[in-house]
């Protein structure tokens, strides 16, 4: 099917793009890769009078590093991030997560910023960004602000980003020495989205005590969910099988899954419990 009619703009600069969003406000939407938005427009689940394509703003496409994080411009294609060669073991989670998204053709169009901004609880990068305690830079008519990923998501397809704002950069923190993590996706039998997926990142000190721990899940609630209680429970002691079991039990209670054709609420809680343990073990092995 074809979308309902809309007006289309392809500004070359960020300022122009924000000017257009400000002008048309609630009637306008950002178009990045279009790999989520176009299917919604085509099926007429939604219709939008004004589309502001940010795909021609070259200054938003980059991958760089500073001493604390990997900085990714929002219109960087998912496939470009997937092919980045210097993740090291600290950010190995990003290689696994990007390679698990959709298929190579969709990753060639879909953008990192779009994946974070869309707010579909099934998107994979939000959980990773939450586990790492990353953030985004949001630019709007009033200038820039930084939003922690853990504060970004309000409800399904609803974030704190306003209709006249653009996510311009995504910051994936590097946790430094003796840190690693993993992304495990339990896929649906058909298609690419998950029944549940978990992002785990951990850091231990010289004595093997857990110094930092971040975990978050996709597809088991209205938003991606940072597993606060279970993550905090892991910090400060040795990562023993018992500690994992206890925190995993906590994780199963922190999610809000719904029963559907993919499983009952209990099955999904059990799945997340298992993913938590598997993910923690796998991250430890990678240290």
């Amino acid at each position: 099917m074809r979308p309902t009619e809309f007006d289309y703009f392809a500004p070359g600069t960020l300022e122009e793009a924000i000017g257009l969003l400000k002008k048309y406000d609630d009637e306008a939407k950002v178009l990045a890769g279009g790999q989520s938005l176009l299917p919604l427009l085509k099926s007429r689940v939604t219709s939008i009078p004004y589309l502001v394509d940010i795909g021609n703003i070259d200054s938003l496409t980059y991958i760089t590093k500073n001493d604390r994080a990997l900085l990714v411009g929002s219109t960087t294609k998912v496939s470009a991030l997937e092919n980045y060669r210097n993740f090291g073991k600290n950010l190995a989670i990003l290689k696994e997560a990007t390679a698990s998204i959709a298929d190579p053709l969709i990753r060639n169009m879909g953008t990192v910023g779009g994946n974070i901004a869309h707010g579909d609880p099934g998107n994979d990068l939000p959980a990773v960004l939450m586990a790492l305690d990353g953030s985004v830079t949001v630019t709007g008519p009033e200038g820039q602000r930084h939003v922690r990923a853990r504060d970004l998501y309000l409800d399904s397809y609803t974030t704190v980003v306003k209709s006249n704002e653009i996510i311009t950069e995504v910051q994936f923190p590097d946790w430094g020495t003796r840190s690693s993590g993993t992304y495990i996706k339990f896929k649906k039998p058909a298609g690419d989205f998950s029944i549940a997926a978990i992002a785990i990142q951990l850091k231990v000190n010289k004595d093997g005590l857990c110094e930092k721990f971040g975990s978050a899940v996709a597809s088991v609630g209205p938003t991606p969910i940072y597993l606060k209680r279970s993550s905090e429970a892991m910090v400060g002691s040795k990562i023993t099988p018992m500690a994992m079991e206890k925190a995993a039990e906590e994780a199963a209670g922190e999610i809000s899954p719904t029963a559907d054709r993919d499983g009952t609420v209990d099955q999904k809680r059990d799945l997340v419990r298992k993913l938590f343990i598997e993910g923690t073990r796998k991250s430890l092995r990678k240290l």
């Binding site: 289309y8 178009l31 279009g34 299917p39 085509k42 294609k77 053709l105 969709i106 060639n108 169009m109």
Partner: peptide, 9 residues
Amino acid sequence: KAVKSCTVL
């Protein structure tokens, strides 16, 4: 890059 042309304007 290979892309799905039904999902590109």
